[in-house]
Amino acid sequence: MSSAQLYDTIGANYTATRRTEPRIAAQIWAALGDARTVLNVGAGTGSYEPADRYVLAVEPSALMRSQRRPDAAPCLVGSAESLPFDDHSFDAAMAVASIHHWQDPIAGLREMRRVARRVVVFTHDTSDAGWLHRFWLTRDYLPEVANLLAGRPSVTELARAIGARLEPVPIPWDCADGFFEAHWRRPEAYLDEGVRRGVSVWAKVGPDAEQRAVHSLGDDLASGRWAERNRELVDLDTAELGLRLLITN
């Protein structure tokens, strides 16, 4: 299933749970540097688009495009792997939490590098062998996430393809953007189907794995087992769960 087909299926209420997290936005916008023209690739509903610069968006899903605000940046139909722009058309190209849906991530990144002098990509480092064990949801309830990574290039390979550096992105405990790891200190959120529907991981692992994980988590929350296992999280303001920016200079 392509990214457009996926989000045309699951994205109906995307804006209800997937909002711009100001602290992550500030880090992304700082990485854009002095760029005045920005291409947003896989732009979705427009989260994280800076309001003080000229932005042009590219998004393959009609349903996602339909949920963009009336005052959002203009949005074209298109995909990362074949951007309809001349070389160096933009000061910067950005992509936020979309690269894992691209058919060919390296080709998409090289296209971004072709059309812009700077590239900023918000993604995830899954190359660390301990990554799946740092987040309790994948470690204890949803090990199927590991299967979603098969055959995908590592973040190191992605960075090398465009000469990018890596910058860690900490996740605040009260993160406003409901991506997969966002509720690391608010486990009850994962029992909410509306929260889960805004995250592609749940659709990709399938309903059987989803329901097993939800039931198991619900039982552990009710019994106090989750709190006992994860007591060290209570006093943390941010968590390091592998989120990264790829940034070219």
Rank of each mutant, 00 (worst) to 15 (best):
Y48M: 08
G242E: 00
E167R: 05
I247G: 02
P168Q: 01
S89A: 13
N13A: 13
T138S: 14
L158R: 09
D219M: 10
I171H: 11
W173F: 09
P74K: 03
E240A: 15
G44C: 02
T126Q: 01
F85E: 10
E157H: 07
L217F: 14
L109W: 01
T9N: 10
N40F: 12
A72N: 04
R18D: 07
D177V: 09
L166K: 04
Q5K: 06
S2W: 01
A57Y: 06
R152H: 14
A189D: 12
P60V: 00
A164G: 09
G242F: 00
N230H: 15
M1E: 10
G194T: 08
Q67R: 14
A182P: 06
A62S: 07
Y14E: 15
R160E: 15
G224I: 08
A150K: 14
C75Y: 10
F179K: 03
A80H: 04
L83R: 06
D104F: 07
L142E: 10
E193L: 05
L76Q: 06
K204Y: 06
T20L: 01
V195E: 15
D208F: 14
A62M: 01
G242S: 01
E81S: 03
R113C: 09
I106A: 10
Y141W: 14
G163P: 11
E228C: 11
P84E: 12
V38E: 06
V155D: 01
W184R: 08
D140V: 05
G44H: 09
S2Q: 07
R65E: 05
A150V: 15
T126W: 01
V234I: 09
H100I: 04
W136T: 03
T138A: 05
N40K: 02
S200C: 13
L217Q: 14
D8W: 04
R229N: 13
Y54R: 09
P143C: 09
A57F: 07
P170I: 08
A213F: 15
D104L: 07
W226H: 15
Q67S: 10
L76M: 13
W131D: 00
E49I: 08
R68S: 03
E181Q: 13
L158A: 13
L109R: 00
E59K: 03
G206F: 04
R113L: 07
D8I: 00
Y48G: 12
L245V: 02
A209L: 12
G163S: 09
Q103W: 02
L246E: 01
R197W: 13
F180P: 00
S47Y: 04
F179L: 08
